[in-house]
């Protein structure tokens, strides 16, 4: 078991022939991911990395029946690409691209919710089920199959949590990078719900950061609905207010969204806190006993 992706995932790559998509698709194929095709308008009929290229998602769906799509197109085209995949009936969409305008996401989010589609991202590293499928830009080599589910707003910080749980022999069930934007397609709560139901996952690591109130909302949800132990680390304890820390979502605004507030709330709701990023793995091991 795992969540969202596994060895049966048939992946489509949107923006397939671009340089980033090519680099990461090669790595995904090497990891064992089944890439059934790609889309680049105007390049339909070609073959790229051994897979067919289509002009549209609809054409690809008809020919090769993908059940997930990963998007690498430039930010200004993401709204169109996500909605195209949604319109073509794909139920799991991962948008890696960084810099998507927030107002585009407001509309996209409303639409995918209506259609019951899972969108991961934008501005995220993607999702991986170790040993089965890698849909994203994370280094496959640091992952091992195991019992810890990892959810994170940040890319390289997720790798840090993965590496630590691998080194301590725990391994991961599925790792989901939900992205650092203000309006993410998938929230912590959406993933927590899936991980609670997943038999393989025995503990959940939630890596948050300053900005917004997603961690606080997740904390409330955990208290009411999650029976598995949750370990959390919040980045940005030393970040000054009013300064955006790289991610569009990582900003302490109007006194809200500080690491201190989030940690306090998480503790109140029974979440185990890794005080420092170096302790994520050790804390998880300790909690699992």
């Amino acid at each position: 078991m795992s969540i969202l992706v596994n060895k049966d995932t048939r992946l489509l790559v949107q923006g397939f022939t671009g340089s980033q998509a090519t680099l990461h698709s090669e790595q995904s194929i090497e990891y064992g991911t089944n890439i059934v095709g790609g889309v680049t308008p105007g390049k339909g009929g070609q073959t790229h990395l051994g897979a067919p290229v289509f002009n549209s998602v609809h054409g690809a769906v008809e020919a090769v029946q993908p059940n997930a799509s990963i998007i690498f197109v430039p930010a200004k085209f993401c709204k169109d690409s996500i909605l195209e995949a949604a319109d073509a009936g794909i139920k799991l969409i991962i948008c890696i691209t960084e810099g998507v305008p927030t107002l585009d996401m407001l509309v996209v989010k409303k639409r995918i919710d209506e259609l019951g589609i899972t969108l991961i991202g934008p501005n995220c590293p993607g999702i991986i089920t170790p040993g089965e499928a890698k849909l994203g830009i994370m280094p496959g080599s640091i992952h091992t199959q195991g019992s810890v589910g990892i959810i994170s707003r940040s890319g390289t910080l997720t790798y840090e949590a993965v590496k630590q749980t691998t080194d301590l022999g725990l391994g991961q069930s599925t790792c989901v990078g939900i992205g650092g934007d203000p309006i993410p397609g998938t929230s912590f709560i959406d993933v927590l719900q899936l991980m609670e139901a997943d038999k393989q996952t025995q503990a959940i690591v939630m890596v948050g950061e300053i900005g917004g109130t997603a961690e606080e909302e997740a904390a409330e949800y955990i208290r009411e609905n999650i029976s598995k132990p949750v370990i959390s680390y919040i980045a940005g304890q030393t970040a000054p207010p009013g300064k955006r820390m790289g991610h569009a979502g990582a900003i302490i605004a109007g006194g809200k969204g500080t690491a201190e507030d989030k940690i306090k709330k998480l503790k109140e709701c029974g979440v185990h806190i890794a005080e420092n990023l170096l302790q994520i793995g050790a804390k998880t091991k300790e909690v699992l006993g």
Binding site: S152, R153, S154, L157, E209, I210, Y233, G236, T238, G246
Partner: peptide, 8 residues
Amino acid sequence: NGAGLAMG
């Protein structure tokens, strides 16, 4: 490299 890790 990475905003989250930079904060961390």
